[in-house]
Nucleic acid binder design. Structure first.
Lengths: 127, 127
DNA sequence: GTTGACCTTAGAGCATACTCTACCCTTTAG
DNA sequence: CTAAAGGGTAGAGTATGCTCTAAGGTCAAC
């Protein structure tokens, strides 16, 4: 698959795809005789994974580490397992923090709604 | 409180504190006669909140929106409630995504551990 | 009154992650 | 053969979020 197709199927800018490749995030990129890149079918999924992890706040460096461990042919199983455990612990901690923020936002939302309701006929909200 | 104390109590670089102020994240910063900044006690808490939200991946712009709504003296209650609801929905979606990632990492960790155990006497891990 | 610690602003510099431009080569259609 | 579409690299430019430097004002102690 050429870069235009991968760009179209993933919605990721071709410049960004080449940037990801340079950053070591896309590793099975072949070349044809004319030096054009030739992506395997799996690249679509891999790019999607990169974008998902990115959306969650992983840096490209961290994403590379995780993807490398998932491929685990260059990395040792035990090392990979340790890395996964570390990342999972970090993720689980993040989930706990997010839950606290969600609860806070929920409380504030409720408070603002109540203020809005209470003051609807009395003019402006200023508690 | 002068900037050095706020820096020391929050662990945030003074340049960063001034940067946050410029970005509208710290709004009750007074000035003494000599033009030195004079932070209220609450600034410590506020900076901590900024850092927590930042660690969760909020941009400074988003943090400002949320903090503005929490202060809700410049913003309308209903608008504030809507903003909170939006942010909470985004946060809850993020929690679901994080949980998927956590599950994935957990599965991979387990797989790698099993590979490591199975291959401990047989040489290198290459599945 | 001068030293040294602390403050000020403006602006330079840096890392990350793109995003785009310039310029040139390859392929395909007419 | 040539034009258009698509590909390649190198490198410049942008946004965000710091982090630091330079040049200078303020203040408390000696």
């Amino acid at each position: 698959m050429q870069i235009a197709e991968l760009e179209q199927r993933t919605g990721v800018n071709r410049h960004t795809l080449r940037y990801y490749e340079k950053a070591g995030l896309l590793q099975e990129v072949g070349r044809r005789g004319n030096n054009y890149r030739d992506y395997p079918e799996k690249a679509v999924e891999r790019v999607a994974m990169v974008r998902q992890l990115k959306a969650l706040g992983f840096s490209l460096r961290e994403i590379r580490e995780v993807l490398d461990a998932l491929r685990s042919d260059s990395i040792d199983c035990e090392q990979g397992a340790v890395l996964m455990a570390e990342k999972k612990a970090a993720v689980d901690e993040k989930i706990r923090e997010w839950k606290r923020v969600s609860a806070l936002l929920g409380r504030e939302q409720k408070r603002l709604e109540e203020s809005a309701a209470a003051l609807r006929q009395q003019g402006h909200c200023n508690r």
